[in-house]
């Protein structure tokens, strides 16, 4: 434990800014994965345990497209669209069979998918650590904000994720499709009786979740090393995020993700060995005090 490092950092604005931005990028990546998890759970009532695998696929796709075209914009697009397409195939072939099934089956099918997708990535891209490298557009001197060093890519990542959060929040709140999704979360049978193709809606929602996870992977590719097991650790953290924020709530996912990101960034200073323990502690506290999560409404 190193509380001095933590207090030193909290009293210096440069360290504060640096740690906070790194906390925010962790949080933003987590948010993009967690929001898919929470939307899919909210409507289909399954926890897509293989969601982390889509993040991993997104990162690897981004790396491949970037190496082929040298364009980061295309790489992001490729990661999001490619992951989305893979998600549609998986939803149609496997996920559809476990909606409404028992938890044991859901866990097993997702467990199998994780094993298969991890191995496929290992076959296609090799088992070793890979790095994509910073795109040239962002290879510029870092910004100095209140004495803290902030790489411009971090700002881009945070802005991109916040933009997605805003668009998503507005779409769910204002558009017709958003209303349909909210209704389906409440009572899918009734929505289907009203003449809406819920099978298609489920596929679309699953694809949206995969697209966001793929985008998160694409955004993470320049700043994270890529390994075939990278999806699992982010899945566990995203799950903690959704538990803290409340399953099914987008706002909850955002708040929970930023909270976990900050805990990770500052916890790494004060409690380097127990950063992870802090996250679980935070989750346990929320579960004891408010089992539905900070923004969860009904009993989950």
């Amino acid at each position: 434990m190193d509380l001095n490092a933590l207090t030193d950092c909290l009293s210096s604005s440069s360290c504060l800014v640096t740690q906070a931005t790194s906390g925010f990028i962790i949080g933003m990546l987590l948010f993009l994965v967690a929001v898919g998890l929470t939307l899919i759970f909210g409507v289909m009532k399954i926890v897509n345990f293989s969601h982390g695998a889509f993040y991993m696929i997104g990162a690897y796709l981004a790396m491949t497209v970037f190496q082929a075209t040298q364009s980061y914009a295309l790489a992001l697009l490729g990661a999001a669209v490619g992951t989305c397409l893979i998600g549609i195939v998986i939803e149609r072939f496997f996920m559809q069979r476990i909606y409404g099934g028992n938890v044991l089956m859901q866990l097993l099918v997702c467990y199998a998918l994780v094993l298969i997708l991890d191995d496929l990535v290992r076959i296609v891209w090799g088992p070793e650590f890979r790095a994509m490298g910073m795109p040239p557009a962002f290879q510029v001197p870092p910004l100095f904000i209140m004495g803290g060093v902030v790489p411009p890519f971090y700002l881009f990542l945070i802005a991109a994720a916040l933009l997605m959060a805003g668009v998503l929040g507005l779409a769910i709140a204002k558009t017709r499709i958003g209303k349909t999704i909210r209704a389906a979360a409440h009572n899918p049978a009734m929505v289907s009786v009203l003449g809406i193709n819920t099978g298609l809606l489920f596929t679309a929602l699953f694809a949206l979740g995969c697209l966001l996870a793929g985008l998160a992977g694409g955004l993470a590719a320049p700043v994270r090393s890529l390994t075939p097991g990278m999806g699992f650790s982010i899945l566990i953290e995203s799950f903690i995020v959704t538990v803290i924020g409340g399953m099914g709530s987008i706002m909850g996912a955002l708040v929970g993700a930023i909270l976990i990101g900050l805990i990770r960034a500052f916890g790494a200073l004060g409690f380097p060995l127990f950063t992870e323990a802090l996250m679980y502690l935070c989750m346990a506290l929320v579960l004891i005090v408010k089992p539905t999560g900070l923004f969860g409404r009904e009993a989950a």
Binding site: F94, L108, V109, Y111, A112, L115, D119, L120
Partner: peptide, 9 residues
């Protein structure tokens, strides 16, 4: 993993 996963599925 590939084989085991397929068997589980």
């Amino acid at each position: 993993g590939l084989v085991l996963g397929s068997v589980i599925l």
